[in-house]
């Protein structure tokens, strides 16, 4: 397994995505890997086109424009993602909230959504993970046994049993490696209060409506990238103290949670 993986990159969701693939069977040659990698990148671009709140052509932009006045029908794929977001909100006591506390109503009977007045949907905290999970489905459908998918370096998904070593970098001083993990058949999501070049955080505490502050970063390993994104965003918004209490109450699951403030520590280890 030491061969260089096939790599393809794409710009989407205001960042860069990389797809690394390795074919394990002689039959699945580079031609196959390229076709799969293109299918993955095209899927990511397609989802960006549907989920971006900045692109006026997107479904999210349409909802944000129209759904304050009435229920707006959305397609089933997007509705399922919105339901996942709602479950995430309930699971995290409201700290993961794609409406930033604004509120919405989802109607499963006809896949429609209505926003509270002034409320807007921002899938920035989950879209990359969702796209990576869809990428994994494509790898599976086309029998690629090993792959690493990443978006913006903050969302990573390892597909298959191969172990991919990942450096965790200091959010404000990216030259510093603060930890190392080995990722296999698992997803990693990192959220930091801000990057070095940012003055304030773009993560909002949905319960207060205020941007979070400090210098913390949260690292979540989970079976799927969507779940990892929900936890990393919510826990960071909670802050260390509340996050620790929350995790103590949380039923044992697959998730593994790391925190960095002055030092790196595991808040929850995988059982």
């Amino acid at each position: 397994m030491n061969r260089t993986p096939y790599q393809r990159s794409i710009e989407a969701m205001s960042t860069r995505f990389d797809v690394f693939l390795r074919g394990s069977k002689a039959d699945y040659d580079e031609q196959h890997l390229e076709a799969v990698a293109v299918a993955v990148t095209e899927e990511i671009v397609r989802l960006d086109g549907a989920l971006s709140r900045f692109d006026p052509r997107s479904e999210i932009a349409r909802i944000n424009r129209q759904a304050a006045k009435q229920f707006v029908r959305v397609d089933r794929e997007l509705f399922a993602l919105l339901e996942t977001c709602e479950q995430g909100r309930q699971l995290t006591d409201g700290y993961f909230d794609v409406t930033r506390g604004g509120g919405w109503e989802l109607n499963a009977a006809d896949s429609s959504v209505r926003l509270a007045v002034e409320s807007q949907i921002d899938l920035g905290g989950i879209g990359k993970g969702f796209a990576l999970d869809r990428g994994r489905e494509i790898l599976r459908r086309f029998n690629v046994e090993s792959g690493l998918l990443q978006g913006g370096t903050s969302s990573v998904l390892a597909v298959g049993q191969e172990v991919w070593p990942i450096d965790l970098r200091h959010p404000l001083t990216p030259e510093l490696v603060i930890g190392q993990i080995e990722l296999a058949n698992c997803s990693l999501s990192c959220s930091a209060v801000r990057r070095s070049e940012q003055k304030t955080s773009d993560i909002v505490n949905p319960l207060t409506g205020e941007a979070i502050f400090g210098k913390a970063a949260c690292f979540v390993l989970a079976a799927d990238a969507t779940t990892a994104e929900i936890y990393s965003t919510a826990l960071l918004a909670m802050g260390l103290e509340r996050a620790s209490k929350f995790l103590a109450m949380l039923a044992d699951g697959e998730e593994q949670i790391g925190w960095f403030e002055d030092d790196f520590l595991w808040l929850k280890e995988r059982r």
Binding site: K25, D27, Y28, D29, Q31, H32, E34, A35, V36, V38, A39, I138, R141, F142, N143
Partner: peptide
């Protein structure tokens, strides 16, 4: 810039 190929779910030997 891509081969314009869709992936096929079985290997060429199939």
């Amino acid at each position: 810039n891509n081969s314009w190929r869709r992936p096929v779910p079985v290997p060429k030997s199939d």
